[in-house]
Amino acid sequence: MFRLCVAALATLYLSTAGCAVVRPHERQNLARRTMTEDRAPGQGRFLQHQTGSREGADGGTGEPGGGCGCN
């Protein structure tokens, strides 16, 4: 099931990305703060810490979780 989910996401991703070309002068909206990082630096870290100590699931952010004795 998990492999199927990964495969489906990858297929969807590749099928939508294959023909996409956005030129540099078209990227002003993509550079907006709401489209890049709209959270304060510590907010995302606290959020991950909070859910990591209250849920059995973690990850998907590319950042390490855990790191405390709060399990």
């Binding site: 990858a10 990305a17 996409a20 993509l30 489209m35 952010t61």
Partner: peptide, 19 residues
């Protein structure tokens, strides 16, 4: 961890991260 982020249109970006 591996991640991909793709610009799809001038207003849409999609990303996938696997840890």
């Amino acid at each position: 961890s591996i991640g991909l982020a793709q610009l799809l249109t001038p207003n849409v970006v999609a990303s996938v991260t696997y840890d």
